[in-house]
Design a protein around this nucleic acid. Structure first.
Ligand code: FES
Ligand code: FES
Lengths: 144, 144
DNA sequence: ATTAAATAGGACAAAATTGTCCGATATAAA
DNA sequence: TTTATATCGGACAATTTTGTCCTATTTAAT
């Protein structure tokens, strides 16, 4: 479904958001530990998210990553996915034709688009805030 | 969503089915042309499908690939996908945790499982026969 | 029997994705 | 101003996926 990079990106963003809500800026090292991801690879992904203004990065001593609290409910899961994987997942043809096109549909177009559109809606309607809600109370997990 | 191999596999199976319904056995070369796929790579994928008894292969002169007409409505899209990509798409965690587990869910578990399960049902309920229906009459396409 | 045409399968190659390492740069604190 | 601690970014390495090539094997037709 999503690339590894994207999965790490979502988990990292969620962790950063959860800590930002407590006014904690977090380091790459801490993030990678908390989401159980390879540290240097995670750094690359965070750079991408930073360039896409999904997370804020602060260099230097006492630096790290954070997300403005005001943004946490505004940022949608879709923005993270699109920033890393592009929008193939919500636009592409299920059978890999160059473009999904209802005028020249592939044999699964109708059924596939139905599900793809639901996924698209889910991604676009799920905020980072929602994703942090279960974390603090131990209802949801970013690693196991 | 699906790997390239899986996309080619679905398109190839659909084409073979459509020709089998007219009692035509088709060659690798013809398949690759009709679905616009790399021929040698397609050969590998057809081997996999053949080993998984999704398509029948006949070696030698006048050989090729076919699917028993009786099987065409029985074979489901899911069987092709599982044979090539495994069942990660209908079982895996959206955020890449080792296993999806509702007792220790990731932050998107509920919303993700809803969509994943619909996809699973779609795959398991769509027969190869259905996928061939639009092809003959030019309503659907396997290449563009 | 020989030949031609087809798939099977192993070895290899290219490309994409995933992952690592290290020096440059920025910042806070001593 | 120096030092310690961060991220940034480029180069590189490993792994997986995608794709190619060539020989062996099978089969039908001559
Ligand atoms: S054309 Fe294949 S999903 Fe639309
Ligand atoms: S635990 Fe992530 S989808 Fe179920």
């Amino acid at each position: 479904m999503f690339s590894k990079a994207c999965e790490y990106g979502i988990r990292a963003s969620t962790y950063i958001a959860s800590q930002s809500l407590r006014n904690r800026r977090v380091s790459l090292k801490e993030i990678a530990e908390e989401i159980d991801s390879p540290i240097a690879f995670t750094a690359k992904i965070l750079q991408q998210l930073s360039r896409n203004r999904i997370v804020d990065s602060v260099k230097g001593s006492a630096g790290g990553f954070q997300i403005e609290n005001k943004q946490i409910e505004k940022i949608k899961l879709s923005e993270i996915v699109y920033a890393i994987d592009g929008n193939e997942v919500s636009m592409g043809c299920g059978l890999g034709l160059k473009k999904c096109n209802s005028n020249k549909p592939c044999p699964v177009h109708d059924k596939f688009v139905k599900i793809r559109d639901e996924l698209k809606m889910m991604l676009e309607n799920t905020s980072l805030y929602e994703m942090t809600e279960g974390l603090e109370v131990g209802l949801t997990y970013l690693k196991r």
